[in-house]
């Protein structure tokens, strides 16, 4: 029993800062979302945009930030369903559909020097795993 209590205290002590720090988001678990979204860029966690923003984006995949990202209609609706059901709330609540344009993103990255974004291994603001090695697992606490 003593061990159990100790283990509980320890795991809370380890997990709490990560949760409270806000640098952890629930990772993408839906295999279709991982596969479809993850083929051209990291499959971003649904909590990064509001449900409205996801709906707007998923209804215009023919022009997905300048590229074509169309897919079969049944896939579109399944992924939209997953994204909106797990979408972010008020904290990142923005109706804009670009994660990297949100005020929250700018605030989080205010200390990043401009030349970092254009580095060859970074290339884009949407390339989270270039710096956050565990971004795909939802861990961004490595700055």
């Amino acid at each position: 029993m003593k061990r159990l209590i100790l283990a509980t205290i320890l795991s809370v002590a380890v997990a709490a800062p990560a949760m409270a720090g806000g640098d952890w988001v629930a990772p993408v678990k839906d295999p279709l979302t991982l596969k479809e979204c993850g083929s051209c860029h990291m499959a971003f966690q649904p909590a990064f945009l509001s449900a409205d923003a996801w709906r707007k984006m998923m209804s215009n995949l023919a022009n997905h930030f300048g590229d074509n990202a169309e897919m079969a209609p049944d896939k579109v609706s399944a992924i939209t369903q997953y994204l909106t059901a797990n979408a972010g709330g008020y904290r990142r609540g923005v109706s804009d559909s670009k994660i990297t344009d949100t005020a929250w993103f700018a605030r989080k990255h205010r200390k990043v020097a401009p030349e970092v974004w254009t580095r060859k291994d970074v290339m884009s603001r949407s390339n989270c795993p270039a710096c956050h090695k565990q971004a795909e697992q939802g861990l961004y606490d490595d700055d």
Partner: peptide, 27 residues
Amino acid sequence: VNPEIASCSTCHTDDPTKPGRHAKTGR
């Protein structure tokens, strides 16, 4: 049509046996 991605080889590189990199996302 698309100055950022002008060709298949833009992302897949001139040698298709090598890994490539998405020209816009860096993936």
